[in-house]
Amino acid sequence: MDELNIRDLPRIFFNMEIMEGQWSLLFSGLWVTLEIAVVSIVLSTFFGLLVALMRIGNNKLLNALLIAYLEFCRATPIIVALIVVYFGLPFLNVTFSPFASAVIVIVFIHAAYIGEAFRAGILAISKTQTEAARSLGMSRLQTLIYILIPQAFRLVLPSLANQWTGIIKDTAICTILAITELLKAAQIISTWKANPTPLVMSTLLYLIILIPLTVITMQLEKRRGLKK
């Protein structure tokens, strides 16, 4: 063990014999991860938009509440929130399944960030657009749906992509729950076989999903930077 030969590294970290027959567990873990990610992305985008719409109105009380909500989400580690929801709430006889608590926590926290992004996007659209739409006889709702939201989506896309990547990354935190997602599956196989190959494989799977998203996000950010 002490005399480490560099030629041993592939045998330790990329030992495919270890993985034989284990891929199904790893891929079922990947499937769970993707499920959590997709549900969370859809819901948090929806709620984020809702939060942004509530913020742009002139409602002082609602604004104050939503600012408090945003600051709360900025200052709370996701893992703490997850433990409180999954291990704390059962003490009050409120029990969520691991999947549900993962989705609830991720959506709760990321909706705040996405809401902030959407708000910035909507506010960045020139006021004259709203005035023009209103003078054409559109109602406020129509202005919102046909004029503001489509443009906001385009403006917000880089930060939205960034948040979505963040959501997929945060699904890995759900290992602490009793749910066999990708990282947990890898840890199970790794402990059983006493070999780190499954961990390396799961990392590669994460990277296969996340690297394209990161590259796209970086491209989008660069393009936005050029436009300014």
Binding site: L4, D8, L9, I12, F13, T165, I168, K169, D170, T171, A172, I173, T175, L183, Q187, S190, N195, P196, L199, V200, S202, T203, Y206, L207, L210, I211, L213, T214, V215, M218
Partner: peptide, 22 residues
């Protein structure tokens, strides 16, 4: 790109559980 893509949890687990093998 690599470290912007990798989830923090995965990296921490990998470093802590995989490096002892070498």
């Amino acid at each position: 790109i690599l470290f912007r893509s990798i989830p923090a949890m995965v990296l921490v687990v990998l470093v802590y559980f995989a490096l002892p093998f070498v």
